[in-house]
Nucleic acid binder design. Sequence first.
DNA 1: AAGCATCCCAACCGCCGACAC
DNA 2: TGTGTCGGCGGTTGGGATGCT
Length: 261
Amino acid sequence: MDVNKKKSRSAEEVKNSEDTRKGPWSVEEDALLQNYVATHGDGRWNSVARCLKRSGKSCRLRWLNYLRPDVRRGNITLQEQITILDLHSRWGNRWSKIARHLPGRTDNEIKNYWRTRVLKQARNLKCDVDSEQFKDALRYVWMPRLIERIQPSSETHDPLHVSPSELYPNPTPPLHHQNGFHGSCSGSNALESSSAKSEDLGHNVSVPGLCENLNDRDMARGNMTLPFGGGDSMESLWDDENLWLMQQLCDDLEIKDNFLA
DNA sequence: AAGCATCCCAACCGCCGACAC
DNA sequence: TGTGTCGGCGGTTGGGATGCT
């Protein structure tokens, strides 16, 4: 796009912003928009915008993200989380493309989910969300675990909802996942405070970074929010059978620390 | 009860490509 | 071919809700 076009566009947008209402939608506006779409169909946003004194963009967004009859609200399910993580690993931040594979979910909702849950967790881990360590943790530890958890209840076979063996034909993680557990983990941490679970089971393992950077609220709750947090709590990950997962994660984090050093 | 911190999500913004004229 | 309009997309933000001290 050339410079002139950019200039003209901003003039157009400035004009639009001066003429239109902004902020939360009222019930009346919602009703008007719904009626308009019911009568004329969607896609004619500037026409409806003139009736509502809103920008066309605002009308479109309100319809797609909120008023559309098939829009699903509520917690992102485990299966949806898997799909999001999987598709994001393939396509990156192509939210609308990802949303097309999650019926009823909007790109905005998926984007919000990613930013509030996954990026937060990367922050806690002091990982770059694009780092190989974080991606490996997703691919080889958390996603397979999630898949295992949803499998018993899955009856249909959606090509996008693949089994661990399909998604990860070679179950052997990369070399750095196979290293012994070097257990430099110590100190106060979520695994310990999240429960006395690990102590009860005779383990005394903590995960640097992963645990130490939890915010106080999560610590107090004993509720460590993994990237797939949400409707179905991840607390059950913190049991004996999953201890090895966190050991693998420790390996990752040590490698990350070396990498960053 | 009040103040503060954090989370979460609806909505906005700026950019871009497609298309019509 | 150049210009204007429109819809779509990804990034960002404001503010209400919630929880902690």
